[in-house]
Structure formats: C-alpha cells, structure tokens
Design a protein around this nucleic acid. Structure first.
Lengths: 138, 138
DNA sequence: GAATTAAACTTGCAAAAAACAAGTAATTAT
DNA sequence: ATAATTACTTGTTTTTTGCAAGTTTAATTC
C-alpha cells in the first residue's frame, strides 16, 4: 500500500511522488500501461512478475484513487475492464524514461534495445512523441 | 529491503531500478544526499521523515551494496561516517529531477520553490550542472 | 583518567503488509 | 443450462516494518 494515513505526504516532491506511485508493483503496472500496451487486469497478472491478485487489485485501486490510472468497462466484453493512464499518469513518462536510461547504463543484463537507448540519448523528444502517439492510438 | 533473492531482477530497466533503489526510504535517502547536503546517519534520522534506525541502517547498507552510495570515515571525528553518492548514484539525478518536475505540477501543496521549477523547465541542463557542482564541492 | 555523552548501529518483539491459496460473482461462450 | 472467463475478495501464513531498548566505539567533560 502506498501510504495514505499518518503524516501529510505532500510538500516534498520526492515524498509526494512516493506516496502516489512509489512502490515496486505500482512502477511495474505503470510500465505495463506506458510501454507494453497492457490494459487488462489479466494482462498485468500474466506479465510474469509474480504479483498476487490481491496486491494487484489494491495497487490498481490506489493508482486510480490518485488519479494516475482510470478504469472503464470494455465496450465489447463487458466483463473486462480497461485500465489506462490519465494525463497525470502519462506525465510520468519523462521520469520513467530517465529511469530506463539509467538502468540501461548500469544493468549489464539490460534488455533495453540498443536502438531505443540510442534514440533516448540522441533524440529524446522525438522518442517521447513517438511513445505518446502509441499511447493515444490504443 | 529491496529484493535480492528470488527472480533475477535484471533485464527490465524498471524492474532493475526498483531492485536497486526502489522503495520509499531509499528515495528519501537519495534525496537527502543529492539535494539536501545531508551525509551523516544522524542527519538522515533527523530529517524528520520518521524512519526507524534499523530500516535506515538496512537501506544504507543496501544502497552501498548496490554501488549507489559509498561510506567513509569522517577524518576529523572518526566515530562518524560520511555517506555520499557514487557516480552511479549521481547518475540518478535526471530521474529525480523528472520526479520533482512532476510533483511540482500535481501536488497543490508543493514546497518546490517557484524559481527551482522555472529553471527546471526552462534551463534544465544549467540547473543540473549547478546541482552537480554543489554535490562535488561538499 | 574516569565518567558522561555522542554517534552509529543491533536486537527483540509487536504490528502491519505482502504472499499464497482458495473461493465468489458477474459475464460470456458452448 | 452448463462450463469457462475475468476480475476480483477472503482467509491464512510468511515477511517486513516500526518501535523501544540495548550495545559498541570514540570523543568530551569533569
């Protein structure tokens, strides 16, 4: 759970960020939504990270509560829900890309495609536009 | 504790990042080191976030183990240890700045100084150089 | 130089959260 | 009508955190 009670978590930007999306599972869900095209509960589960069903439900609810993710019913299959990033969630892209850049440098087993890393360093704005387009047309 | 066992956390850049520094307390420690000029165990404790002594010790050890933070004895007072960011830790600055930028936008109680936010958006590279200089001369 | 104080932890225990396994409810397909 | 999907919820065990107190080494103070 991403702290709600206790102190007020606002004020400091790092503390605020951590209170809004700051745990392992939330980051992985945002990754799935932002870069992997996943949008169903079952797709997050099957991403293979090993998240439990109760934790996934809890994190999705937190992210929705914090206005980072929104949830709507699938028009075709009404038993499915479509999760997507809000504008506030999409605005996390620069942070996520900075993290990817860092990890690509320091993880010797990185799976970041070389071409992606190259674009990220040489034409970051173009890459970001490209990714934003993908997000909007899904 | 930032996962060590179980799966291999390498590969995916987001998963790798979270395994290296991905919890609330680690982020706050990195913040203290990067932006607040704090470097002693006691200073992290007294930062007022409410971290417990055992957790602080554990997180510092993890960050050191992951090569993000280094520890050395204070030359003057040898009972004190000086913690500082390694090059790998300093390389997290773009990510931290992106998070600050985001939080400044979405936290209506943000404490980010307006001047800082302005620089962050208008002349990010200059701001970063400025911050790096501060880091090196401490 | 002996006794406090300071600084950085460690240890033990209770409380909270996460992981695991199973079950339920509402569609949708057969 | 029956079985299978999908998205959860519930109950229990395990792990992690939070809290309080204690230990160790070095530095002051008396």
């Amino acid at each position: 759970m991403v702290d709600k009670k206790k102190q007020n978590w606002a004020g400091c930007p790092i503390r605020f960020g951590m209170s809004q999306f700051g745990d392992k599972w939330s980051f992985l869900i945002i990754r799935d939504l932002m870069f992997k095209g996943r949008k169903y509960y079952s797709e997050f589960l099957e991403a293979g990270e090993g998240i439990s069903t109760n934790i996934l439900a809890s994190r999705l609810a937190d992210l929705e509560h914090n206005g980072i993710v929104s949830k709507r019913q699938d028009a075709v299959k009404r038993s499915k829900n479509i999760y997507s990033l809000t504008e506030k969630g999409i605005a996390l892209m620069p942070m996520m890309l900075a993290m990817i850049d860092w990890a690509e440098r320091y993880d010797d087993q990185t799976e970041v495609p070389a071409e992606f890393a190259r674009k990220l360093r040489q034409t970051p704005e173009a890459l970001q536009k490209e990714l934003l387009n993908l997000l909007e047309n899904n």
